[in-house]
Design a binder for these strands. Structure first.
Lengths: 335, 335
DNA sequence: TTGTACGCGTTATCAT
DNA sequence: ATGATAACGCGTACAA
């Protein structure tokens, strides 16, 4: 391990001068600089990032805690975050929390321990009360629908409006018995917010609220979507429209409907949420809500970077809600 | 920022004793330990990971360099790697290289700079000659098909055998004009190896090799797959089977065939490679080669961890090739 | 323009 | 069972 001292000795200068060369400081004579660069190359010198981190009190790395990275939604989020961080010279460490509260708290600890300069937390296990226990000076940005309104910065989706728009679209396409495929709705989260939008749209259209049409699944997976669709058909529920709270669920639903011989969009129309890349290429292609992933990732990183750069707790916490667009494809009858 | 010194002072002991408490060393009296723990809690002490890293010469983090994380294949790889690393108490930093040689070299530098204890590199831009310039003592495990046989450890897929099996399956289902959808094949890489397997299978079956049936796409994307399928149909190529080198391409191909009204598997049978999660839920569901992702991730991390634990350059480099299974679904006529 | 001295927070070694 | 001291490698005042 050659150190900066070794290079200094080999080049006949002080370590300080080597440091100045490395960091591109101006006050170094050309000849000196070249001597130093030559010595660095000859000794195959590498800066020790750990030492630099200790000295600077910064690691140049932010953490991203997500339930899992192997899902279209979270991997897209991760890609956007990594790219946005790279634009700012930051690296990203990824923690998979498995959607458990405990793992999410662990990720927060790692950040407090200065392994990360700050943390982007996709909260699924944690709730609002946990957020209130966060240290106010800890650079944290929360994503998702479980925590809003401080005391942390938050980046979220326009759940209510977008869901309402999606269901209204189904109504406009002639649907009258519209099912919702969502998760458990006992707490404030993605499912409960999108359920609210669904209900508003029904009310707007003067349609009845049939509780039977709200179908809860245990997880947002392809398998659960397919199972749920088959259940709906075999139980004789007979919806003519289905709004799924994620595209992954919707993909499973399309498959389940195919299994039971129900034509889409002929007999049932389907719309999802997230507009994942695959949706445009399914057969039939899937209509979806596009929440502007890139803007979310960019804003989340920007907020976190800003927090990292200020030592003081902020006067107020930011709330960013992305825009959305409705992407109409074959599963609801096409554009 | 309370330091270990602050805690020591508050507890009336030395910093060393505090360190011993933190790290669970045995020789600490019960009463002392409790005093220290109390002081730590009272002062809200957090270990400084950067300082610990400097002292230990380890960061406890490995790097994973992949072209992009927003793809079913790489996000699954990342998920497996993160989980395998977590089982060993390691964290994972992710670098997106955009498949460029330069970015892959950057990732190697970061690792050399001891930001990471070691690097898992999905090589796409780098080739065998680059590998030969790697420092022999640098803990690196290469994934993918561009670099094999040292001087680094390597984890790969059974490209030739698996491709051969996939195409042979098409033959057994009655296909005689089998197209291959792959990338450019001018170098040793995934496409060229799978092309070789494709050719072997044709030869095995006594089928002619029609160069027209080898279709090159510029990227392994859904869009390219769809475009390629439409090209094949409109140009009158008229294949009765298609082997795609990735499931993402195959998903696009299914869509392209649907666009042109070609029934699958009735008129054309399609098989992919990777067995991504979505494949089982497409309509029609997609037959595919399953390369045992979990074993690959686990082995890659195990190899890297082993390299990190030895200071000496290894006597020889390891080569791990995963097993595979053929998963037969509707796109080739079902099981 | 270059060099000196010291601090960053932790832990290993050695001694008590 | 506990403590003193010295690194780990780099960056920053400050001095020259």
């Amino acid at each position: 391990m050659t150190t900066i001292q070794d290079v200094a000795k080999a080049a006949g200068v002080s370590a300080m001068t080597v440091s100045n060369v490395i960091n591109g400081h101006p006050n170094v004579r050309r000849t000196t600089r070249e001597k130093v660069l030559e010595a660095m190359a000859r000794l195959d010198y590498r800066v020790n990032v750990a030492a630099r981190n200790l000295r600077k009190g910064r690691t140049g790395t932010i953490g991203l805690a997500v339930p899992e990275v192997n899902s279209p939604y979270y991997s897209r989020l991760a890609a956007g975050v990594i790219a946005a961080a790279a634009r700012r010279g930051l690296r990203v460490g990824i923690e998979q929390t498995g959607a458990t509260r405990e793992s999410e708290l662990d990720a927060l600890s790692l950040s407090r321990n200065r392994l990360y300069d700050g943390l982007l937390l996709s909260a699924v296990g944690l709730g609002q009360t946990d957020a209130e226990r966060l240290a106010p000076d800890q650079p944290v940005v929360v994503l998702g629908d479980r925590i809003t309104g401080g005391p942390v910065d938050h980046v979220g989706m326009p759940n209510l409006e977008a869901s309402r728009a999606a269901v209204t679209h189904l109504v406009e396409r002639g649907c009258r018995r519209i099912a919702l495929v969502c998760g458990a709705v006992d707490e404030v989260d993605t499912s409960s917010l999108r359920l609210a939008g669904y209900r508003q749209a029904l009310t707007d259209a003067g349609l009845p609220h049939d509780p039977e049409l709200v179908r809860e699944v245990s997880r947002f997976t392809l398998a659960e979507g397919a199972r749920c669709a088959r259940d709906m058909v075999t139980s004789g529920l007979d919806p003519d429209g289905v709004f799924c709270v994620t595209d992954t669920l919707a993909t499973g639903v399309l498959r389940g409907l195919a299994d039971t011989g129900v034509p889409v969009p002929g007999r049932v129309k389907v719309i999802g949420f997230d507009n994942i890349a695959e949706s445009a290429y399914l057969v039939p292609s899937l209509s979806s809500v596009d929440p502007d992933h890139d803007a979310m990732a960019e804003h989340a990183v920007a907020l976190l970077a800003a927090r990292i750069d200020q030592d003081e707790p902020p006067p107020r916490y930011e709330e960013f809600v992305s825009g959305f667009t409705l992407v109409i494809r074959e599963s609801t009858g096409g554009p």
